[in-house]
């Protein structure tokens, strides 16, 4: 463990990864319960497209990706609400288009070697600025969940009722979408385009297997997510395997264990 931390990039990966995992897990509970979990997947693909374009045009990656992904987040939120267009199909269309654009831009501009990094992530891809940004994001997410907990609960459980009570669900949906967009853009460089959405979905699903109250679901998701990330990171270091997939497999293992425990409990 000490040895692992003797590398700067490992320390950065640990801080960024753990914080991103925490944010993704908290936001994930809301997204999964509101049936918006595919938004995470869609946004990561859009993020990939934006990063590829930024790299090809020699622009600062975050300066391009952050606004593009935020705008897409609001758009996807709208789409998944609109009953005329099938929300999930619309998300799939947008995300595969963005992925296609990204791959073509990357290959035309000769970024093929970076493609792998973008798609599957790399712990070497982070910078000091990312670390700062990530700490700020995590603080904002935690404060939002702490201060607005009751409203987030109300909006997640029953949007109509909360609106009738004078809570503004559209506002909270926008806040959640905005924070999700930021979490994904920052997290996808470690976890990769194709795997970041696992951080949003798995912890929420696992904790819902065993927890009975909204509060416990949120807390357990956050803790689980951090544990899985740290375990995955350490494992990937010692076995010399990619970090993102190792983290996802840890999450999957936890889900299976929780699933088994809950079925055993149901039978008792």
């Amino acid at each position: 463990m000490i040895e692992v931390l003797s590398y700067d990039f490992m320390v950065r990966a640990l801080i960024i990864g753990a914080l991103v995992s925490l944010c993704a897990a908290l936001l994930g509970v809301v997204l999964v319960l509101k049936r918006y979990s595919m938004i995470g997947d869609g946004l990561s693909h859009v993020g990939f497209g934006a990063l590829a374009v930024a790299a090809a045009a020699n622009l600062a990656p975050l300066a391009v990706a952050v606004p593009v992904v935020i705008i897409s987040a609001f758009l996807l939120l709208r789409l998944s609400k609109n009953s005329k267009i099938k929300g999930d199909a619309a998300i799939a269309v947008i995300s595969s288009t963005a992925l296609a654009v990204g791959v073509i831009v990357a290959s035309v501009s000769g970024l093929n070697t970076d493609l792998n990094t973008y798609l599957f992530g790399s712990i070497l891809a982070t910078t000091k600025a990312d670390t700062v940004l990530c700490i700020v994001l995590a603080v904002v997410v935690i404060v939002v969940f702490f201060v607005f907990y009751n409203k987030i609960f109300a909006v997640t459980f029953d949007e109509d009722f909360s609106k009738a009570s004078g809570v503004r669900p559209a506002l909270y949906n926008m806040i959640i979408a905005l924070l999700t967009a930021l979490t994904i853009v920052i997290g996808m460089r470690i976890m990769g385009t194709l795997l970041i959405s696992a951080l949003i979905i798995f912890p929420a699903l696992s904790s819902m297997k065993l927890c009975k109250s909204f509060k416990s679901v949120i807390i357990v998701s956050g803790v689980l997510s951090i544990i899985c990330f740290v375990s995955g990171l350490i494992l990937s270091y010692y076995l010399d395997i990619p970090t993102g997939p190792a983290v996802v497999l840890f999450n999957c293992a936890v889900f299976i264990v929780f699933y088994i425990i809950s079925s055993i409990k149901a039978r008792l």
Binding site: L33, N150, K151, F153, A154, F157, D158, D160, F161, S162, S165, G166, V167, M208, C211, K212, S213, F214, K215, V217
Partner: peptide, 19 residues
């Protein structure tokens, strides 16, 4: 109109009525 599979405690749900 309600999600019947929501992981919230009864008290949490009722309390949200006082918001």
């Amino acid at each position: 109109d309600i999600q019947s599979d929501f992981p919230g405690s009864v008290f949490e749900v009722v309390l949200s009525g006082t918001l």
